[in-house]
């Protein structure tokens, strides 16, 4: 059974990836399972300088999902290079560095500093929880093209652009990123959501609104992967509410080459391993010899 997939020339042992921000940088989760089980680890968002993030509460549970507003808290790229990269390199998995600068220049600089220390760089143009950068870059085709082109020019490893679902036409955004040089796309980042405590009439999140993720958003994510897969040629990393092995298959059938687990990691630290094992069982139960035969294998209804 072949489980290897290829993202822009980088071979993943299997299609299971952890979504940025849901898995830390592997220090904690690595105490619960061998991280070499994963196809790739996408680390928590990196900025040039340390970033303190948003006030708490930063999380709220909603039906079949969560809202978060962490706000890219992280100790900065130098800390990542000296502290996290050597630890992650101990594992037989690929490292994806999610970069979340607040300006084009900052992202260029982070990409330059990272060099070839990681296997792939994921440009986050879709974080809903920051004032500057984030989703402000990801909702306009011209802006997406500009930032992708400039950051790509600084990348020594393939560039993934992470797309926001909070747009009118995600396929157009995807095409802009692809045309500007993106080697792969990942989607979807969180939807923008809100929860209000009706007794106090206050939003539960300190920052009022935040990123909505979890199984509740999976149908939106699957539909967007399906649309984008038809619009572009570059490989896709699909994500949004993946909770079990069949969810992985669903995203791949819709057109994803790899699939990221997110909110599930917050429920149980070894959720990604469980999901991977369920997916492998799905493959063997359904006589799928090569995982690649799933990618984009949707049998669409003819209208």
């Amino acid at each position: 059974m072949n489980t290897k997939v290829n993202i822009a020339g980088v071979t993943l042992n299997n299609p299971i990836v952890t979504a940025s921000g849901t898995f830390g940088n592997g220090w904690e989760t690595g105490q619960y399972f061998n991280l070499s089980e994963l196809g790739a680890i996408c680390v928590k968002a990196i900025t040039l300088k340390p970033k303190e993030g948003n006030p708490s509460p930063r999380i709220a549970e909603v039906t079949a999902g969560i809202l978060n507003s962490v706000g890219l808290q992280n100790p900065g790229v130098e800390h990542f290079l000296t502290y996290d990269v050597p630890n992650l390199k101990r594992y037989d998995t690929k490292i994806i560095a999610n970069i979340s600068g607040s300006s084009i220049e900052e992202n260029e600089e982070i990409a330059t500093v990272l060099g070839d220390s990681v296997d792939l760089i994921e440009l986050n143009i879709s974080c809903p929880n920051v004032k500057e950068g984030g989703v402000a870059f990801g909702t306009d085709c011209g802006m997406v093209a500009e930032i992708t082109k400039k950051v790509k020019a600084k990348c020594k490893v393939p560039l993934i652009v992470k797309l926001s679902p909070n747009v009118t036409n995600i396929s157009e955004i995807a095409k802009s990123a692809e045309n500007a040089g993106a080697d792969a796309l990942s989607l979807i980042n969180t939807l923008y959501g809100m929860k209000i405590d009706v007794k106090s009439r206050r939003p539960v999140l300190a920052r009022n609104a935040g990123g909505f993720s979890g199984p509740a958003i999976k149908p939106v994510a699957v539909r967007m992967v399906w649309e984008v897969a038809k619009a572009v040629k570059v490989p896709l990393i699909g994500m949004g509410g993946v909770m079990n092995g069949e969810d992985v298959a669903e995203f791949m059938i819709a057109g994803a080459t790899a699939v990221a687990t997110g909110t599930a990691n917050l429920v149980t630290p070894d959720a990604s391993l469980t999901i991977k094992n369920e997916f492998l069982k799905f493959m063997s139960d359904n006589n799928i010899d090569d995982v690649n035969e799933l990618i984009g294998s949707i049998r669409e209804n003819q209208l």
Binding site: G21, T22, E28, S56, R58, I59, V70, Q73, P269
Partner: peptide
């Protein structure tokens, strides 16, 4: 006490303030 996510330090949602940092 704080609203928590993963509980192990990976998701960074349950913060409080210490010497001006989260």
């Amino acid at each position: 006490e704080q609203r928590m996510g993963c509980g192990i330090g990976a998701c960074a949602v349950c913060t409080c303030r210490s010497h001006g940092e989260n």
